[in-house]
Amino acid sequence: MSTSTRTRILEVAAALVRESPDGDISTRAVCEAAKVGAPALYRHFGDKEGLLSAVVDHGFERYLAAKRERGETTDAVEDLRQGWDSHVAFALDNRNLYRLMNSPAMRTPPAAALESHRILTGDLQRAAAQGRIRVAPELAAQMIMSANVGVALMLVSRPATFDDEVSHRVRDALYATVLTPEASPRTPPDAEVPTAAARLSALLRQQRGAGLSTAEAALMKEWLDRVANARSDG
């Protein structure tokens, strides 16, 4: 009984968010539509923010399930490009839900946002192990996620001004900065140092320190990430 009540409240709230002109809903409207009292809603979700966070996770579960089912290919760079495009496509198909997920009113990031970031970081760690990124995976993930979310929000909020072409141009420009081209014998040695540092850091992480103590591995990672993330003075 408890589970069915929670599910009914969640599904009603998700429908109201989807149909709302601005994506905002009231707990009173949710209770009336779900035919439950306010105590039941607060017992299951704590408060309105808890309810909205659950709505976001409920909606994004389909998106995350598709990413999990996709699995990993041998081409981490292509996975990164597809990840950007699928993120934007989901935002356009779920405009109110996407606005809600990235609203300043959501003081605690929904679990879906955290998992999406972990998946992106995992793809970047694989790319780093292949020598394909210029900075540490964690910094690259922050750069890509902030740009991906920003572009998606512009497409959702201002469709008359921004379109898919803008998304592709921003994606390609950012990836040209973060990713390395295929290995070339003409690549100058000084340009290879950050990439080599990022790759070694990723490989050490995969090998769980490769014989180093926990403290030594942490220090080595700090040094390598500092070299990988250093900006060239040229």
Rank of each mutant, 00 (worst) to 15 (best):
residue 73 T to A: 03
residue 128 A to T: 13
residue 10 L to W: 02
residue 160 A to V: 14
residue 48 K to Y: 00
residue 52 L to M: 04
residue 161 T to H: 14
residue 84 W to P: 00
residue 90 F to C: 13
residue 209 G to P: 08
residue 173 A to T: 08
residue 227 V to P: 08
residue 231 R to K: 07
residue 59 G to F: 13
residue 82 Q to W: 12
residue 49 E to Y: 03
residue 186 R to W: 02
residue 129 A to H: 08
residue 26 S to G: 10
residue 85 D to Y: 07
residue 187 T to A: 01
residue 231 R to D: 06
residue 221 K to D: 13
residue 81 R to F: 09
residue 58 H to S: 13
residue 148 N to W: 10
residue 104 P to C: 04
residue 60 F to I: 08
residue 225 D to K: 12
residue 94 N to G: 05
residue 199 R to K: 06
residue 45 F to S: 00
residue 145 M to C: 06
residue 233 D to C: 04
residue 4 S to N: 02
residue 142 Q to C: 12
residue 110 P to W: 14
residue 117 H to L: 15
residue 181 P to G: 12
residue 68 R to A: 01
residue 184 S to M: 00
residue 153 L to H: 02
residue 216 E to Y: 01
residue 192 E to R: 13
residue 180 T to G: 11
residue 196 A to P: 04
residue 211 G to K: 14
residue 151 V to H: 08
residue 65 A to L: 04
residue 29 A to N: 06
residue 137 P to R: 02
residue 108 T to H: 14
residue 193 V to D: 00
residue 57 D to L: 11
residue 97 L to M: 12
residue 103 S to L: 14
residue 213 S to F: 15
residue 42 Y to A: 00
residue 73 T to K: 03
residue 210 A to C: 14
residue 185 P to A: 02
residue 148 N to M: 05
residue 176 A to K: 02
residue 79 D to H: 06
residue 210 A to H: 15
residue 92 L to E: 10
residue 7 T to K: 08
residue 37 G to T: 03
residue 131 G to I: 04
residue 54 A to F: 01
residue 159 P to I: 05
residue 96 N to V: 11
residue 217 A to W: 09
residue 18 R to D: 10
residue 183 A to W: 08
residue 204 L to D: 05
residue 136 A to Q: 04
residue 55 V to F: 06
residue 4 S to H: 08
residue 156 V to Y: 13
residue 11 E to R: 00
residue 125 Q to C: 15
residue 38 A to N: 15
residue 56 V to E: 14
residue 153 L to Q: 00
residue 209 G to V: 10
residue 143 M to H: 04
residue 222 E to H: 10
residue 81 R to V: 07
residue 19 E to S: 04
residue 196 A to C: 02
residue 83 G to I: 02
residue 146 S to I: 11
residue 27 T to E: 05
residue 4 S to D: 05
residue 229 N to D: 12
residue 132 R to A: 08
residue 198 A to N: 10
residue 191 A to H: 12
residue 20 S to M: 00
residue 138 E to I: 04
residue 50 G to H: 06
residue 78 E to V: 03
residue 230 A to G: 04
residue 96 N to Y: 04
residue 156 V to R: 09
residue 211 G to R: 14
residue 49 E to I: 01
residue 210 A to N: 11
residue 153 L to N: 00
residue 207 Q to D: 07
